[in-house]
Design a protein around this nucleic acid. Structure first.
Length: 216
DNA sequence: ACCCAGGGTCATA
DNA sequence: TATGACCATGGG
């Protein structure tokens, strides 16, 4: 159980993160799309603009002019394509009877449905599954790849689906709370420590890590 | 000035 | 299957 021991170390150091920071499942979904390759601090500004316009609902977003929607999204970058992605997601969300319609689907079916939306790839889909629909799905991101490769636990060549099943197989008997916290802890740890190599000395994972302070 | 952020799509070989 | 171009703002 190497994965769980990493989890324990991270949890001991950083504590519970209580993700996803949002007031509703729909806000989680919007945030998941807006944070694609984008710093969360920028997403907060865009979300704040949408809320200030009173537009944080699928119907309202859908009937908003592209120029207006894009102007709200401007701080989060890629505002033109994200405006299109947000609308196509809202159209899909309404067609499937919103949260109450979708929540009845089995996790893998729901994942297929999410992936059928233009602009939603595997990571965004899994963010939504885990943090909006409370499903036991492990989210893989660039941090997860980097950290667990440095630790010497995973192979560099594994693609998204193989990595996800590796994590889910080893953690299948754990509670969903672990899935929720684990991904959040990986992100927090990567932002606070792993970026600065000198901090390897004080890293809570140094006893397992094989990077030896070198950039990998 | 340069690098990258809680990615995804599309065209090309 | 596997690269590369493209999308774009803001903080370090």
């Amino acid at each position: 159980m190497r994965l769980k021991s990493v989890y324990k170390s991270l949890f001991k150091k950083y504590g519970a993160q209580h993700w996803w920071p949002a007031e509703s499942p729909f806000e989680v979904m919007v945030g998941a799309i807006l944070t694609q390759n984008t710093a969360w601090s920028n997403v907060e500004k865009a979300l704040s603009n949408i809320k200030q316009a009173g537009a944080l609902s699928p119907h309202t977003i859908l009937k908003t002019e592209h120029e207006d929607l894009a102007s709200w999204l401007r701080p989060s970058g890629y505002f033109n394509i994200k405006a299109i992605r947000l609308k196509s997601f809202c159209r899909w969300y309404i067609q499937h009877d919103l949260y109450d319609g979708l929540k009845r689907q089995h996790s893998l079916k729901l994942r297929e449905l999410l992936l059928s939306v233009k602009g939603i790839g595997p990571e965004t889909a899994d963010d939504i599954l885990l943090y909006a629909f409370n499903r036991k799905i492990f989210v893989i991101d660039a941090y997860t790849r980097r950290i667990f490769y440095r630790l010497g636990i995973v192979d560099e060549s594994l693609d998204y689906e193989n990595l996800r099943s590796l994590f889910e197989n080893e953690l299948h008997s754990e509670e969903i709370k672990l899935f929720n916290e684990f991904h959040a802890l990986i992100v927090i740890h990567a932002k606070q420590v792993c970026k600065k190599k000198p901090d390897c000395e004080s890293c809570c994972l140094r006893s397992i890590c094989q990077c030896k302070g070198l950039t990998v």
